[in-house]
Design a protein around this nucleic acid. Structure first.
Lengths: 139, 139
DNA sequence: TTCATATATTCGCATAGACGAATATATGGT
DNA sequence: ACCATATATTCGTCTATGCGAATATATGAA
């Protein structure tokens, strides 16, 4: 099977049901119940796509941790991954209406959170982004 | 100290900071990562105030469990309690802007969740509510 | 004071989740 | 084929969380 350049999205109960039941929603929230994952989502709210090494550098967190939490976010339907050469590019996937509500709220409210704003600031230092110099679609 | 009729709100890190930091937000989400607690919040989105025995009956869940999860919701700043005689009346407390965003979204999106709608339906059977026949402020 | 009711807490147990270190896998370059 | 880089997974361990049963506490009534 050809794995390179495949768009990866994990098969889970959450995905299958479109989060439309109570335990699906609980699982969706559970995925948000960790600072590492919130910080990752915060970055992806700003930059459409990021590879693991970027996240690792911006958050100053060991690679294993970033990867682990990205897997959790993927399994819970919060992000999807796209391989490009050696790099995996992660992006937000707010597919369900509930998720869109939530991300919309986060975009607005997380601007008041210093830690998140600092992460964004570090993200925007151009030297820190390794493999994603073009922010998805620049006109 | 006089405990009867005191309005109870737990002192926690979350409360203290107004959830305005990343780990406070994670704690807020963590409180939502359980079906029991989601169902309780769902009821409180509909009925302004409910006592434990009402919740117990509507959700058909043992008392210990309801009480435990109400405590967790209280400690995380999602509900507050008011004693009235033998009963504790719980109500939603979406104090922070983030919480208001979230509850607003839930009010809208949870209508699509069958389990939640069924709970509301059972809540509205008049025989099932024991000690709160007046829904807070009826004109 | 004694009893019944409403709610909260403790206890022991079982499962889930987070961590770093080490290791495995996948890709591209040489 | 071999190596370097990017990412994922496994392993052992530790802590957190959920559960029901039992118990404790608080209030009001008799």
């Amino acid at each position: 099977m050809n794995t390179k350049n495949a768009d990866t999205r994990q098969e889970t109960a959450v995905q299958a049901t479109g989060n439309a039941d109570a335990s699906g929603i609980a699982a969706l929230m559970q995925a948000l119940a960790d600072v590492n994952r919130l910080r990752i989502l915060n970055l992806l709210l700003q930059e459409k796509e990021l590879c693991v090494c970027d996240i690792e550098r911006v958050l100053a967190v060991p690679q294993t941790r970033v990867s682990r939490h990205l897997t959790i976010l993927r399994n819970s339907g919060w992000v999807a991954a796209r391989r490009e050469g050696r790099w995996m590019h992660y992006r937000l996937t707010d597919d369900s209406p509930l998720q869109r509500e939530l991300t919309h709220g986060f975009r607005k409210q997380w601007r008041a959170v210093p830690e998140f704003m600092q992460d964004i600031a570090r993200l925007q230092q151009p030297t820190i982004v390794c493999c994603d110099p073009l922010s998805e679609n620049h006109p």
